[in-house]
Design a protein around this nucleic acid. Sequence first.
DNA 1: GTGATTGCAAATCTTTTGCACTAAA
DNA 2: TTTAGTGCAAAAGATTTGCAATCAC
Lengths: 133, 133
Amino acid sequence: MKHDSTNIKHMLAAKDIRPTKIRAAIAKLLFDGRDKHVTVDDVIELARAEEIKTSVASVYNTLNQFAGAGLLRRVTVEQGRAFFDTNLSDHHHFYFEDEERLEDIPTKHISVSGLPELPEGRSIKSVDVTIRI
Amino acid sequence: MKHDSTNIKHMLAAKDIRPTKIRAAIAKLLFDGRDKHVTVDDVIELARAEEIKTSVASVYNTLNQFAGAGLLRRVTVEQGRAFFDTNLSDHHHFYFEDEERLEDIPTKHISVSGLPELPEGRSIKSVDVTIRI
DNA sequence: GTGATTGCAAATCTTTTGCACTAAA
DNA sequence: TTTAGTGCAAAAGATTTGCAATCAC
């Protein structure tokens, strides 16, 4: 869904995140209704393109906070850099190694079954399927 | 399978890797017949315990080369550090987030089906399933 | 002997942190 | 006004690189 400035504020407030100027600006860049996989550099570049003045530290702060609050999903497919995914529905990923790019795979296309028993006292935090191509 | 010094040399030769002293020593540490998930630091520590004198750079060189040659499998579950897996058979992983530790899941316990069509001209390099717990 | 490999230190890259300044409630 | 947030520069951690010395064939 698309979010205008009012919705962005509600979205952040719902997670007890104070809607400061740069948080709202970054949220607006990210939650425009399209699913995205962004790196920190992508966000810095997007912000620059929109003439939003900010800093590396603040972009890290903001993305980490959004991920912690469940507004973004952190995707680990490269050992150097983190990707942040705006698609929060259950899904998996193609990773285009030569382009260093992710693409969603809806859950309906993959079924994971026969999961083994978990070690005592553990619960599943996530099941990530990455198809490297 | 377990590898003695002779087998190690054959193993490396089979991949066109010259069996230098440190490569053979690291291979011997890793391919002792037990499945392992090691980080670079783990290998440095293992080497030190065996009184093998080497350097960070050489450990990186060696592990990268082994992974490139298919003697090790690189596992990406953390965005800071790389893990190298000595188990080359088809399998998946539990990742214990609090312990930063991997554990194998044999393929028979998980089935992935209904893979979507690949983009034109692409082929699957790997299918990685990580269950974070 | 000749080219590959090693080890050291320096460089690079991503991410985090310390801290003075600024903005939000 | 009072606490939380921002931005800068420095720090930290993992990995790579340049290069002279050393090793393998």
